[in-house]
């Protein structure tokens, strides 16, 4: 990976290069089935005839702290991961869990019936059921006999 300083005249974006390298490594060695989760939270999307189910791993966030909005075919998840507070006299040994605000938007291939959309939170996994409006569902058309 070579960066030409003379041509562009810009500083190389090291963070971006690192991310790209990481993505390439993941693609080379990781399972091809898994997309590289660049964003938080990681989601799985299930699609059926009745609509979609989106699951997201958001451990440690209280269910009432997750904000979900659905508009037409767009679903947005927002929330904040609070850091564990060790208290005044506490010392931190390890801090591997990420903290901070997150937001994620997914666009589905169909409109969502926002009235019937439902969400539940089970053991750190958010399960969103997004049904299609009946008018939007594919309809079978019969051929009239000539």
């Amino acid at each position: 990976m070579l960066t030409d300083f003379a041509l562009g005249g810009r500083w190389p974006d090291l963070a971006r290069d690192m991310r790209r390298l990481q993505d390439e490594m993941n693609r080379a060695f990781g399972g091809f089935r898994l997309a590289v989760p660049a964003e938080y939270p990681p989601v799985n999307v299930w699609v059926g005839a009745d609509g979609a189910i989106i699951t997201a791993e958001i451990p440690g966030v209280a269910p009432d702290q997750i904000d979900i909005t659905v508009h037409q075919d767009t679903m947005t998840l927002r929330g904040k991961r609070e850091p564990a507070a060790p208290g005044k006299d506490g010392t931190v040994h390890r801090e591997e869990r990420a903290t901070g605000s997150f937001a994620r938007t997914l666009v589905l291939p169909f409109r969502v019936d926002s009235e019937k959309a439902s969400a539940r939170f089970e053991r750190g996994v958010l399960i969103l059921e997004l049904p299609r409006p009946p008018a939007d569902k594919p309809r079978q058309i019969k051929i009239n006999p000539a």
Partner: peptide, 12 residues
Amino acid sequence: PQGYTLVHAEYE
């Protein structure tokens, strides 16, 4: 879930 297929996966 029954009747659904996984179309996009970021975690297992």
